[in-house]
Amino acid sequence: MDASIMDWQPIWITLKLAATTVSVLLLIGTPVAWWLAHTPSRARVWVEAVVALPLVLPPTVLGFYLLIALGANGVIGGPFQSMTGASLAFSFAGLVIASTLYSFPFVVQPLQGAFEASGKTYLEAAWSLRASKWDAFLSVASPMAVRGYLTAIVLGFAHTLGEFGVVLMVGGNIPGKTKVVSIAIYDHVESLEYSQAHWLSGGLLLFSFAVLVMVYAFNRRLPVHVS
């Protein structure tokens, strides 16, 4: 087989989408996970349920509501369009928003678990050693949650690579803009281009497997074990 028939554009878009999504998720997911791990508030169960929704909803349901919200008259898409003049639906930015929501639990849950495992006890020790709350978060809670972060990054990344339904509904299938690998494979199969489908599928399979092996190997060697 000839590697030149390999479709590089969807691969590039997919990696860019996954990397952007994971970055956004870490920024938003960390405070949410921290709040969930430490709050005594009764609102906690409601927030936890909302965070977990993408795990149980069919991607098409999420995609449908997102399409409406991101559309020119939607609650997000409307203001965005009037400010920037660009449309969110069927754009890369729209895809990032959709992926962020779709992969939210995969980042928040491992982080929440890690923060809960180390608990407040070490933070109290840090405060008593003159560390401010922010300092204690950075110098104690975060390094102790390193496994949680690793799991969150890998799961968030992998889950974004693997999404199909939401991307199809929100992003459409615009080559060079929103056409990601999973959709490219679908297109190839539809048009019976099995050899291209093989290349992309095999590549994704090997890549995912290699990443997971690396993570598990690395995870074992981490010094911090918090139970």
Partner: peptide, 14 residues
């Protein structure tokens, strides 16, 4: 300006 020693030592494992 306090020093605190807890029942469990609470040494940072990392």
């Amino acid at each position: 300006p306090i020093g605190m020693v807890f029942q469990e030592a609470r040494l940072f494992p990392h």
